[in-house]
Amino acid sequence: MGRVTVRRQVLRISGGTARVRPDALAAEEPLEQRVNGRALAVTMRTPGSDVELAHGFLLTEGVIAHREDVAIARYCDGVDDQGRNTYNVLDIALADGVAPPETGVERNFYTTSSCGVCGKAALDAVRLRTRHSPADDALRISADTLSALPPALRAAQRVFDSTGGLHAAGLFTADGTLLAVREDVGRHNAVDKVIGWALLADRVPLSGCVLMVSGRASFELVQKAAMAGIPLLAAVSAPSSLAVDLADEQGMTLVGFLRGDSMNVYTGRERVIVDSAESPAQPVNATHGTPAAAPVALSPATPSSR
Rank of each mutant, 00 (worst) to 15 (best):
A201P: 01
R271G: 08
S113H: 14
V4I: 07
L179S: 01
T43Q: 10
L94C: 07
R127I: 05
D192F: 13
L139R: 10
L149V: 13
F257Q: 10
T163V: 06
C209F: 03
A156F: 04
R131W: 01
P134F: 13
D91M: 08
A235Y: 09
A121Y: 13
D175R: 07
T173K: 09
D275V: 13
Q157L: 14
L221R: 13
M212G: 01
L200K: 12
P101E: 02
R12H: 07
V70C: 04
G170I: 11
D96Y: 03
S279Y: 02
A65L: 11
S279P: 00
K193I: 09
V284L: 14
L246C: 07
P231G: 12
L146V: 13
A228T: 10
G116M: 09
A301D: 02
V20G: 01
G176K: 08
A228H: 08
W197N: 07
G16N: 08
L200Q: 13
R12C: 02
S240D: 12
V265C: 00
D69P: 01
P283R: 10
N189W: 00
V6Q: 04
P303C: 14
T103A: 15
P231S: 14
D202T: 10
R8M: 11
S304Y: 04
P239F: 15
R154S: 11
E68K: 11
L254S: 03
F160T: 07
A24V: 07
S214M: 02
A243T: 11
R12D: 09
P295N: 09
F219Y: 15
V117P: 00
V105D: 06
L171Q: 06
V272H: 03
T145E: 02
Q223K: 14
E278N: 08
L246D: 07
Q157W: 05
E220S: 12
R7T: 15
T46G: 02
G16T: 12
R216N: 05
S114E: 12
R216V: 11
T43V: 14
D50S: 04
T145P: 01
E220P: 01
T302I: 06
S305G: 01
R34G: 00
S276N: 06
A65C: 06
V284S: 04
L153P: 03
V296A: 15
D275P: 05
V284D: 01
P239A: 15
G48P: 05
L178A: 04
A201Y: 01
P280S: 15
R3P: 02
A18M: 13
A65F: 02
A148W: 07
T17M: 12
D245Y: 10
I141F: 05
D91Q: 12
A180S: 08
H66C: 09
Y266V: 03
Q282E: 14
R19A: 08
L128P: 00
A99G: 04
V4Q: 09
M227K: 08
L149T: 12
F160R: 11
A73F: 05
G256R: 10
L123E: 10
A99V: 13
L171S: 01
V244W: 00
R127E: 11
S14M: 08
L200D: 11
G62A: 06
G2P: 06
G260Y: 00
R182V: 09
R3M: 06
L211V: 05
D184Y: 02
S49G: 06
L59M: 05
L53Q: 05
D248R: 15
A243K: 09
C118F: 02
A198Y: 00
D80L: 00
T86P: 03
G119N: 06
T267M: 03
A168I: 04
